[in-house]
Amino acid sequence: MGPGGVDGRGAVSEPGGAAAARSELEDAARRAEARRGFLIALPAWFYLTLFFVIPLGIVAVYSFATRSSTGRTVLSDWNFDSYRRLWDSLVVEIALRTLLLALATTLICLMFAYPLAYYMATRRPALRNVLLILVMIPFWSNFLVRTYAWKVLLGSDGPVSQLSQALGGEPIRLLFTNTAVIIGLVYGFLPFMVLPLYTALERMDWSLVEAARDLYADGWTAFRKVTWPLSIPGVVAGSILVFIPTLGAYVTPAILGGAKTTLAGDYIVSQFLAARNQPFGSALSMGMMLIMLAATIVYFRWFRPSGRDL
């Protein structure tokens, strides 16, 4: 029974003279406590202000600046040109491709991860832990290396192609295509989908399914009416964890994609390292960031995840 358990009827007592003094003392104690908390928070606050908030501000400022003919950024003549360029057909095409690819990746991950998580959650505890470790290993493994492994596999003289030829087929040319990028992204982010789904399903009260069966639901109906609705938070968390990083993916398309499969992340990087158009790159970054923030806020508003894990 804490403050939350109190049934409040509003303030009744009028603070008298001595009581008012006491109240100030209580306030002083609370202020001292707040000050202590603030001081403990301060180092990270200071650090993030210097190395995150200010850099964010600089990008915002740069996005309104002008690029000189030599590729330098001129911090004057503020304008919206960079933002106007976001509607160029090339940019829109890249944005749509990125969005589609991210959606496809998320759906494919969900398709394979849900049954896997369900399978894991319904095993004996001992086996469950082994399977969990098997998912955790790729989750913790170096992302770059895992993506590189697919370059080895899918290369023109890689095992996949060789296998196909050995079986009398054509050499398979997957590398540098959208398919290769999707395979790489699914491979990279699948564990991010499995883990929240598994957490949601494992925590579920399975006696609810028994209750549904007891009340004449068949296995499929019990799943549809009980298990699936209860696992929605996991589905949403997993989808967000896959969708958002794939939107900004850079490493995977850079390794497995080709010239015709430029994605948003790739495109932004090229504005800084190749095209040297910092204002436009900044505007692109801001746009991408706003989309992701919006997606995240929608997620938190609508689904209000109860657990903090993942």
Binding site: P3, V6, D7, A19, S23, A29
Partner: peptide
């Protein structure tokens, strides 16, 4: 539950400070 008995105990223990009194 919610009658204030635990809050009273916590004030005697020192986990909460009274607003008045």
């Amino acid at each position: 539950s919610g009658c204030g008995k635990t809050t009273t105990l916590r004030m005697i223990a020192g986990f909460e400070f009274p607003t008045e009194g």
